[in-house]
């Protein structure tokens, strides 16, 4: 038993060094499909489909964040909408104050709001990290169902706070009149924005790839598989999990900031618990604990949303059926079907 766990951890470290096995080929082709699809759509003048691709990429990024906690850390967070929404509100509130030329949050000592993406992204990442640290600190004392429900409850807390705080639109949400800027780039151009999001997705994926191949990644895997063994080998599991949870929240928060800019709007729907469920669904559809699983999941989800949504107003009914079928009969998700079972399942 103990020996097999050691093997699993070192085996993971070895496989995460990028070797193009079947999973690698599928991952690479997913990214290629996105890039080619968006470029072709742009050249054909179909802005809508470029934005659809951006949507896939952003939702995939949110899923990559959750996957770090859920798939690799074994922490079933049902509250990632909190980070997604907070990231969105950072982009929205920054733009709001930049438009008004007032200090951030209306507090005189703070610098003025900003419509520059880089400071907004960094703020979103920092704040989401702080929030995830607080929530993780309190929630990681529990496990199992308690953890699921507590993360859900904390996300609801943020949700109700956003609804009852009237300055930034409350229930009506907050429009972003002009998409935030990045140096000299024309971010309003749909393809430029797509490649921005895509670049960040690739960055996040390679970051996670490096992270999981490191000693930290091995410790995180072990914290999921056998925390007691990890503790006996001299590594405390809880700080490792907390760290992964914080990074997970940061990545999802960055996705939220992009999502707000894509839609030109941020509202409480980004904080809704359905959103937490959706991000989770994306991770599961793609395949839990597969690095590129969320990419596959997000592409499938957005495509279904578009295709079924065009057929019927009640598309979520069918989404429910598909999801139920995946959970009951195809547990590995897309990657499980295409690339076989993962090595460390």
């Amino acid at each position: 038993m103990t020996q097999s766990h050691t093997l699993t951890a070192t085996g993971l470290a070895r496989t995460t060094r990028f070797r193009l096995d079947r999973e690698g080929w599928i991952s690479l082709s997913l990214l290629l499909i996105l890039v080619v699809g968006a470029t072709v759509a742009y050249l054909a003048g179909e802005r809508f489909f470029v934005n659809l691709a951006s949507r896939m990429v952003i939702i995939a990024l949110a899923g990559v964040g959750l996957n770090l906690a859920l798939g690799f850390g074994g922490m079933v967070s049902f509250g990632h909408a909190a980070y997604f929404g907070l990231g969105g509100y950072v982009a929205g509130i920054g733009a709001f104050h930049a438009f008004d030329m007032t200090p951030a949050l209306g507090i005189p000592f703070l610098p003025n709001g900003s419509d520059q993406m880089i400071p907004l992204w960094l703020t979103a990442i920092a704040l989401c990290g702080l929030l995830a640290y607080g929530i993780g600190r309190l929630s990681l004392g529990t496990s199992g169902v308690y953890f699921i429900m507590i993360t859900l409850a904390f996300a609801q807390m943020i949700y109700y706070f956003a609804i009852s705080w009237p300055t930034y639109g409350g229930e009506d949400g907050l429009p972003i009149y002009i998409r935030n800027q990045l140096w000299g780039l024309n971010t309003n151009n749909s393809l430029v924005f797509f490649f921005l999001c895509f670049g960040l997705l690739v960055l996040a994926l390679s970051f996670c790839h490096r992270l999981l191949g490191s000693r930290f990644g091995a410790a995180l895997t072990m914290a999921r598989l056998n925390p007691i063994r990890l503790a006996t080998s001299g590594v405390e599991p809880r700080p490792i999990k907390l760290m992964a949870f914080v990074i997970s929240g940061m990545i999802t928060g960055l996705a939220g900031a992009l999502f707000a800019d894509l839609n030109g709007f941020v509202g409480t729907s980004m904080l809704d618990w359905h959103r937490s469920g959706e991000i989770m669904v994306i991770v599961i559809l793609g395949g839990v604990g597969r690095l590129y699983g969320p990419v596959a999941g997000a592409m499938l989800f957005v495509a279904m949303e578009f295709w079924l949504g065009g057929l019927t107003e009640y598309w979520q009914f069918f989404l429910g059926l598909v999801l139920l079928a995946v959970v009951l009969f195809a547990r590995g998700g897309v990657f499980g079907l295409l690339a076989g079972r993962s090595r460390h399942e």
Partner: peptide
């Protein structure tokens, strides 16, 4: 495990809510 339970019952919510709306 609890993850599967959460997802399956989340799927049930979607089915029930949209079915009722239908």
């Amino acid at each position: 495990d609890h993850l599967d339970q959460v997802l399956a019952t989340f799927a049930l919510i979607l089915i029930f809510s949209e079915g009722t709306r239908w």
